[in-house]
Design a binder for these strands. Structure first.
Lengths: 245, 245
DNA sequence: CGGAATTTTGACGATGCTCAACAACGGTGG
DNA sequence: CCACCGTTGTTGAGCATCGTCAAAATTCCG
């Protein structure tokens, strides 16, 4: 044991106070730890706020940190040598950020909206993970969930047409958004541009736009004008478009 | 400790003997265990041989077992409600089979070739995993590798054309196959039908066939006639087709 | 209000899918 | 050993979907 300076103690106390009121205390990897275990982890974690559009990690960078998303949303993108881009994952509050067993990142991570995250130096995090089996188990669980999600998306990219992809995407956002409003509509906030939707769905901006107006013409959705958000009028109908029997 | 019957002891001895000469003793999850730790795992594992084409697990089944691939190859497929199919993963010797934190499987696993595997009852395997941190760490590593692989494939499905997908696939197989032969060609065995290649690449049988004959016409590959295998003549050129600058 | 950025809409064309015929292969049985 | 037949793979013609290019419309933001 090394001696702990007053500054260290103060830092730890402050950090664990931050953790205690953290928005993702019960959903991130941290939820696998008891309050008293959290002290060590919080001592190595540092809160960061990143503005929309900013890159967190570039493909090709040496992996030096991992993180948990606290609020906001990130995109994970892969690209071809000649610059075509595909979004291969979205990260929301509670999700883990980083390629753990890779020295050089193969993916780029970018903030879609302003995002708060809790980031950890690589070596220190790996040490903590090694000494908290429940946390490691939870990371395994989350990684397998990401894998299932990636596979579901591979099915869409390989076998669904533009209409099904767009309808399915809006439908997923609607599920995440929760319960219907008074008038039966579900208000869905779309945390990305048309270009990013296109990169996610493996389409072009124009095709996404056309499909959205198609869904609107079919009476399944509308747009709160002047905003990026949309209102799902008929979520059952939307699901039928996304998943034809 | 419960008393161990003679039969139990005999089984364990036999099983660990099987493990000792196992083809994937040094590449599967088992490689994280010392010989003496392997006894408990081998006691719950059972060798199975599955003929080509046979389904291991159906989507919708309750998950009751996991497994390691010992030899052969498996495909993992997802499908739409109306029956379109996409291969979302391939499993080779040493790979782990199963959706660990899911009660009901969302994916179907099928043998591409005759396949030997070592399968474990769910509960028993989870118990063993929990008591061997190195094995759990290794499973995490493999799962993250699968995730990276899935993401690479999402890039192809979303953003690469038919020619690039087929050339890339043959190129990958060639890498896996190893070093060039005397005449400079690399003999590549393709462990699947055209239909399965199509399901993997998100194309149709006809498009795959056309692209292959295109690569042959370009002098990049040839076919040992009467066989499914192919000979890569110009792996550099193949890579150039798959990854245009 | 004005200019840049984003989104929508339109016209056109290319890529890859559908449908169909044909060829090659493999196993079976005479 | 070869004829037969089912399966798998190849090739061709036509077409639908989605991408490309271009312009108009809308939104954003100073």
């Amino acid at each position: 044991m090394t001696t702990q300076t007053l500054a260290d103690r103060a830092h730890a106390a402050q950090a664990s106070a931050v953790c205690h009121e953290c928005l993702v205390r019960d959903t991130s990897l941290c939820s696998s730890l008891h309050d008293h275990e959290l002290v060590a982890l919080s001592a190595i974690g540092r809160r960061r706020t990143v503005p929309a559009g900013q890159v967190i990690t570039w493909a090709g960078d040496v992996v030096t940190t991992f993180a948990n998303v606290v609020s906001g949303a990130l995109k994970v993108t892969a690209s071809t040598p000649d610059g075509r881009e595909q979004i291969v994952g979205l990260l929301f509050p509670g999700d883990f950020v980083g390629q753990m067993f890779t020295d050089e990142a193969s993916l780029t991570v970018t903030a879609l909206t302003e995002t708060k995250m809790c980031s950890f130096p690589r070596a220190a995090f790996e040490r903590e993970l090694g000494s908290h089996a429940r946390m490691e188990r939870m990371l395994l669980e989350r990684t397998m969930a990401s894998l299932d999600e990636a596979r579901e998306r591979m099915l869409s990219l390989g076998r669904r047409n533009a209409q099904e992809r767009v309808a399915g995407f809006i439908g997923q956002l609607a599920e995440r958004a929760g319960l219907p409003r008074d008038d039966g509509g579900i208000h869905v906030s779309i945390p990305m541009s048309r270009g990013e939707m296109a990169d996610l769905l493996g389409l072009t901006i124009e095709t996404v736009s056309r499909q959205l107006t198609g869904l609107k013409a079919a009476g399944l959705i509308t747009f709160a004008k002047g905003e990026r958000d949309c209102l799902v009028l008929d979520s059952r109908g939307l699901d039928l478009v996304a998943n034809p029997a």
